[in-house]
Nucleic acid binder design. Sequence first.
DNA 1: ATGAAAGCGCTAACAT
DNA 2: ATGTTAGCGCTTTCAT
Lengths: 342, 342
Amino acid sequence: MKQMTIYDIAKLANVSVATVSRVINSTAPVKDSTRKKIEALIQQYQFQPNAMARSLLKKETGIIGIIVPDLTNPFYTEVLAGAETEAFTTGHTFLLTNTIGNYEKESSYLSMLREKRVDGMIFLGGRINLRNGNDELDQELIQHASTIPTVLINGTVKGNVLTRVATDEYKGTCMAVQHLIDYGHKHIAFLGGEMHMSTTSSKLRAFKKTLKDARLQVREEWILPDSFSIDSGRKQMQQLLSLKKKPTAVFCVNDFVAIGAIKTAVDQGFNVPDDISVVGFDDIPLSHHFIPEITTVSQEAHELGRTAIQVLQKLMSHEKVKKHTAIEPKLMIRKSSAAYRR
Amino acid sequence: MKQMTIYDIAKLANVSVATVSRVINSTAPVKDSTRKKIEALIQQYQFQPNAMARSLLKKETGIIGIIVPDLTNPFYTEVLAGAETEAFTTGHTFLLTNTIGNYEKESSYLSMLREKRVDGMIFLGGRINLRNGNDELDQELIQHASTIPTVLINGTVKGNVLTRVATDEYKGTCMAVQHLIDYGHKHIAFLGGEMHMSTTSSKLRAFKKTLKDARLQVREEWILPDSFSIDSGRKQMQQLLSLKKKPTAVFCVNDFVAIGAIKTAVDQGFNVPDDISVVGFDDIPLSHHFIPEITTVSQEAHELGRTAIQVLQKLMSHEKVKKHTAIEPKLMIRKSSAAYRR
DNA sequence: ATGAAAGCGCTAACAT
DNA sequence: ATGTTAGCGCTTTCAT
């Protein structure tokens, strides 16, 4: 079926396009009889105005561009779901991209979003999580952000010049490590994460700080970053268990690493949490269904997504917004951690 | 920074807009010196053509609309990730929606996608999974599909008039149940799923058929549909274990239900798989990291997504396509199922 | 090789 | 209350 235009409807109703436009947008009074006639026609032909023509004129598309590194990562999808909830209320839709952390793909999508004239943009992961940043990539993003309202989630660029919403990972880590200390653990390891990512380095800083404040020793051979995957957790726990001197508790940079770590420990005949306590980070849905249920730090992903959209909406309507909005992390104490028993 | 237009560039270069358009699209030869000049200007001002203006004219947007019921469900996101891979190669982007299975939201997004004149549409879950269909909802979808090339994933509408790509769930179920039978199980239960969903009913049919072919009894009190959640698995396994006569193996409609079922069984002191075998469906990433690793049926979600986009691309370029493309399921034998021991 | 101008489908100011 | 018309930013004949 061919798409009709506002002209077709106007002709059929013997009125001008302006009148049709008026009934569509109820932007001015129209005589009841003509309105009825037009509405009937619209219904009959299933006419739907071309949003592009309108956008061209109004300079707004009703579309928010989202750049995500990994659609299969539950943390990101939880953020997305939260964002969608909020965006739906204002009629915004998402133009979604999946960059698998590939900077070129990020760039390519960045241009695409600009060409499409999205009303705003949310950026997660990838380049904004680099520990030391990358001038060229940062500049590109800042440049795009100068024409499109942009909010960064859990990341930043050099100089913190872009608006961002983030969980306080440093604080979350302190909470988790302190929890282990409160349980009487004195020998605690740090597992997973890529050292060139800011999320890892800030967690590691928090980890060391918390141990030092409790006058506990930081043992370098128990600090085993690697990546963010389950396999990484398996591998590094393996390594840990091969040491003569083993820790009694482990802080993992995320729940995937925690799952891998627990799995390996269990495979090797250790009991979690009785022999070794494990805490994760993120509170992915599965963490409280795993066996044992995982003690972890919630990033309030849904909330994070919603907040980011709220901030973006202000940005889009030229309201003043804080450069940085922090989301409070929440410690979820479950079954993978227990009091130290000698 | 204000967005420039092709006119601005043309003025700065002392040429007509036509010439600028020509260098942007390399659609006609342009003298080398003028091209260089224009390219420099484009670079300098970071000019990016307005995709909407172009789309208005060309009648194509480069956007594919995707309707998904639940962004936090790993099966759907895996499909999405597969689809994205394929779409990226042709420069298509996704306008994503999340309907949480709400039919009104589906309708609302359906119109939105049409207004936005997406080039094609992928529909997952929701109304297309209704066991007995729903005439009104079906009609609406068919109506939209008559103007926008549409591919349904793992679902259909009455009369099968729309193009679809689907895993053979019936066959997958037969494979899983047969696997349990081959392991010597004679007492097998069916857990989870909503009975008004076609995925549940077709799995149940396959389940019964396979048992009958093996001359095994189908016991109604062991058929415990409910929903697709982990909690549903927990609840129904609880129910199963409260029976005097218990099965030795369980087929679950998906991995979530399987996880819940295993959890409850373990909580109650049963060993999986020694006391009771459990198989799932979908092969979500977590299923082979769970303890025990879950025997399941892979829907080849990534492949499913890719194929759907390939089919859609043909549809969009007016090539002939089969109404139905089947994806072969794959049995993944892991640790949650074992041979029956009396 | 380049320019002028029509038109994609719509909205909004200006007339009537 | 309704119609006329000028764009929005681009592509694409048709001229030159």
